[in-house]
Design a protein around this nucleic acid. Structure first.
Lengths: 328, 328
DNA sequence: TGCTTTTGTGTAACCGTTTACACATAGCTT
DNA sequence: AAGCTATGTGTAAACGGTTACACAAAAGCA
């Protein structure tokens, strides 16, 4: 690897001149520029980011913490931030937290040790204090906190909407599958749905599940044993919904005629399920991109009007819910 | 952020001593150690990785290039490498290449500029020359090359197996959906399947598709128009298979009675499809982990017997293929 | 006791950049 | 022609660690 000194020697100038030419900072004679660039070309010189980063105390790296990219909701987000950041020459250091606080903290620490310019994170409430007193910008993604800028989606409306859909389409014995209560957005959508359901005169049962396939499958098996009369299920996410769908089919229950089912997230494969899954869509890619945009603004010290961006969710009507009765 | 000099001052020793204590290198009196550690504790000192990396010309970062984490096959791999690397304190710089050569090169360059200790990459044949003359280890993942160590899976057996399955179970009008030919592993499985099919006295048609959902959908729509008599489909991956499955269902074709379908990869949601998709399983997580293991060995200069690890694939029998006739 | 070895510590150079500062020269202005 | 300012370039000091080397004190040994 050629260094700036090699280039300087090759071009017969000082390192300062090379640096100035490379960065277009300060003065440099046209002729000198040419000589330097020729040397750069010849030696295939690429400035060492580490050295630059040491001096500037800022790298071109952004730290990204996501719970688990094995859940298709998150890769979508990750691409949103990567694609956006890429235009500005920023790269990602990435880590899965599995929603575990110690992993979150560990990653935050190593990000800091690597002089990241900023961080985007979906971290738990409690890890947020680790973001205090940082001199680099942080944007929360899919999570919120008073003190930090955040991009997230409208969980309340999402939960309400899911409930409304089943209610409007005639379900009266509804099971609400609640995800892990520690995960804020998941809890919020649950609460909103519950409230909505409670206002209606219907039967509501609550069951717990993790956000994974296994979790969903065990939960759903129990569900039909405990509440065989169920005619509507609101799942905490699409994965669990898919597990429910499979169980429904296995039991020969007709969907959406006997039972309606709605998921959450709209991850890509929901459209491929049979029947295609009705769900509440979160704009994951967009969320990632907007978080990245916000981070860039912070990095560039632009002042921002809004620091908390709540993106809208929408009902994606497919075939696990009935057509709404036309009003005449 | 406290620096080593702050700690030295606080502890009343020199920076060299602090460094030695922190790294457990060279001599240090028990008492001194205690004093230093107390200072470290008090100031919450975390050594700056960038400075360390500059001097050592090696960071604790590993570069990872994957085609697209939006395809569930890759996050699985990514977690495999992340989880394995984590034990050794290595972190990931990550980039999606979209199979584009310029993106691959761009990432390789920035990884180098950031003094990564090593790289793991699923890159195209042509990008491989960019790995020449590097003084850091590189491990190919899901791809192969003569010159580079690699962890991949047995595409040939996989392709053959897929063909064998349909053949043994009685399909005679088979469509083989070929993925992008530039992608080596995809091409290999295709070729192996084709050979196997050609040796049997069956009707074989080949169609092209990208590896994405959209690609699969358009391909599959055409498929049934062009070859309505098809009674077996070998898809280039599970996503395309899922698209095919949906089209089959939509057309009211019975599966597996009228048509058999087999996918490739065994990404997580295939089990959730209805009917659950028969497929060829690649051990993605394991592949990632083993690539990481290999990289670590390289980094630690351990000599290695095998540099090319071919992991076995397996047929996951679910319900889009018929039960094999029992031999009596 | 005197010599060698082991232990403990500090000074300063180095890793590869950026940039403050100094200085020289060219081009204007009056 | 003298005095500006604008332009062009180099020297050296950072950035925050690690480590080669020097040196001193303690321990081991005859």
């Amino acid at each position: 690897m050629a260094t700036i000194r090699d280039v300087a020697k090759e071009a017969g100038v000082s390192v300062a001149t090379v640096s100035r030419v490379m960065n277009g900072s300060g003065y440099a004679h046209e002729d000198t520029k040419k000589v330097v660039m020729a040397a750069v070309e010849k030696l295939n010189y690429k400035p060492n980011e580490v050295a630059r980063s040491l001096y500037k105390r800022k790298s071109k790296l952004v730290g990204l913490i996501l719970p688990d990219i094995t859940n298709p909701f998150f890769p979508e987000m990750a691409r949103g931030v990567e694609d956006y950041l890429q235009q500005f020459g920023y790269r990602l250091i990435f880590g899965n937290s599995d929603e575990k606080r110690d992993k979150e903290i560990e990653y935050i620490d190593t990000f800091l040790q690597n002089n990241v310019v900023g961080m985007i994170a979906s971290t738990s409430e409690e890890a947020n204090e680790n973001f205090d007193n940082l001199d680099i910008p942080v944007v929360l993604l899919d999570r919120t906190a008073e003190k930090l800028p955040a991009v997230y989606s409208d969980q309340k409306t999402g939960g309400k909407l899911a409930a409304r859909v089943l209610l409007d389409r005639g379900s009266t014995n509804i099971v609400l599958i609640r995800g892990p209560v520690e995960i804020k957005p998941v809890y919020e959508r649950y609460m909103a749905a519950l409230e909505e359901l409670n206002q209606a005169k219907v039967n509501v049962q609550v069951m717990d599940s993790s956000l994974t396939l296994q979790g969903g499958q065990t939960c759903v098996k129990q569900l039909f044993e405990q509440y065989p009369e169920t005619d509507g299920i609101i799942a905490c996410n699409d994965i669990v919904a898919a597990a429910a769908l499979q169980e429904i089919l296995k039991r020969g229950i007709r969907i959406p005629d006997d039972i309606q089912l709605i998921g959450y997230d709209d991850i890509s494969f929901t459209a491929l399920l049979h029947p295609p899954l009705s769900t509440i869509r979160q704009p994951a890619y967009e969320m990632g991109a907007q978080a990245a945009e916000m981070l860039i603004k912070r990095i560039n010290q632009e002042k921002m009007e809004v620091t908390h961006k709540k993106l809208p969710v929408s009902f994606v009507e497919r075939q696990t819910t009935r057509r709404k009765a036309e009003k005449t």
